[in-house]
């Protein structure tokens, strides 16, 4: 167990190194001029420009700069953001604290509703409820997350006026100053938009696994013993569904991160997703690289947790037998 954990952490470090090399190389090859991002709208003399380049060490060869960058990251220094004029780590930290709330709420919502809908669809297999849930999932899976966000905005903010149009706090107030009720009101729509698309995948998968379980011999035997539908789901179904559910739920972190970029753009929610777009549009390479690396770490951490939960949830691994 401990050995396996160590191995997967080692693998994670190796993968992160590869990711850092790839993203750095891609950014290096791109035609973006980092100095332009730094100076913004101001025009400067060639001399001053050379000075800035020398200051940021842009004259050195790419490999040297990569090694320096990677070395600094190991010391916790991710460089300085060109557009925010702040250390990258603190920009990411600040904004991620907003994004994680959004992501966590929608992650939990899509997990709970996905599981519930899947179980219900399977319990009433072939009925109108089952078909309705299936159509609902297929439609949601086929619509882009940002469009769902726009439609929600249109209905609940523009037409009905129940919820705010965007941002994370009322205008003229920072997020810290805003009362909790306001913060919640601002998070509802983006979280809903983000979780709606996540639900369908989980529901369809849970439904299929449950249907498989319901057609098995042990299901027949359980029914013969007189177990009711919900007893069967509780005693046998859930155990079968748990493993694919864990995989899906933790594997969804990558899509969740991408989705949060879109949802935050639609709802002008000032989280990490918004900063991602800003940094890329304005050519703030240090910040964007930091975010890319951070997002990879986020995804890998999710995979690692899924692996650990696997060994708890799967009796075959838990009992120390052969792994799958």
């Amino acid at each position: 167990m401990a050995k396996k954990l160590l191995l997967s952490i080692l693998k994670m470090i190796l993968l992160l190194t590869a990711v850092s090399i790839i993203t750095f190389a891609l950014a290096e090859l791109s035609p973006i001029d980092t100095v332009n991002a730094y100076i913004g709208e101001n025009s400067i003399s060639a001399e001053k420009r050379a000075q800035i380049e020398a200051y940021w060490g842009l004259n050195e060869p790419a490999v040297t700069r990569y090694l320096k960058w990677a070395g600094n990251i190991l010391h916790g220094d991710m460089g300085t953001s060109m557009i925010y004029r702040k250390p990258v780590a603190s920009v990411i930290g600040e904004r991620f604290s907003l994004s994680i709330k959004l992501m966590f709420v929608s992650w939990v919502m899509s997990g709970v509703f996905g599981l519930l809908l899947g179980l219900i669809a399977s319990a009433y297999r072939g009925s109108v409820i089952d078909k309705a849930i299936k159509v609902y999932c297929l439609l949601l899976e086929s619509s882009p997350a940002f469009w769902i966000g726009m439609i929600l905005l249109l209905i609940f903010s523009v037409k009905l006026g129940w919820l705010p149009l965007g941002l994370a706090s009322p205008i003229g107030m920072t997020v810290e100053e805003a009362p909790l009720s306001d913060r919640i009101r601002h998070i509802i729509l983006p979280a809903l938009a983000l979780s709606l698309t996540g639900v369908s995948k989980i529901t369809l998968q849970v439904r299929e696994k449950m249907n498989q379980a319901a057609e098995s011999d042990y299901a027949l035997f359980a029914r013969a013993r007189g177990e009711s539908k919900w007893q069967f789901i509780r005693r046998h179904g859930l155990r079968n569904v748990m493993l694919p559910f864990i995989t899906l739920q933790f594997g969804a972190l990558s899509e969740l991160f991408g989705g949060s970029v879109l949802a935050e753009t639609v709802f002008t929610y000032p989280g990490l997703g918004n900063v991602t777009v800003q940094s890329a549009l304005k050519g703030d390479i240090p910040l964007f690289l930091g975010i890319a690396l951070f997002s990879a770490l986020f995804v890998f951490a999710g995979n690692l947790i899924a692996n650990i939960l696997y060994s708890v949830a799967d009796p075959r691994i838990r009992e120390g037998g052969h792994s799958i």
Binding site: V19, T276, V299
Partner: peptide, 8 residues
């Protein structure tokens, strides 16, 4: 798969 597709 490790880098979110949107970022890449």
């Amino acid at each position: 798969m490790g880098i979110p597709h949107l970022i890449l």
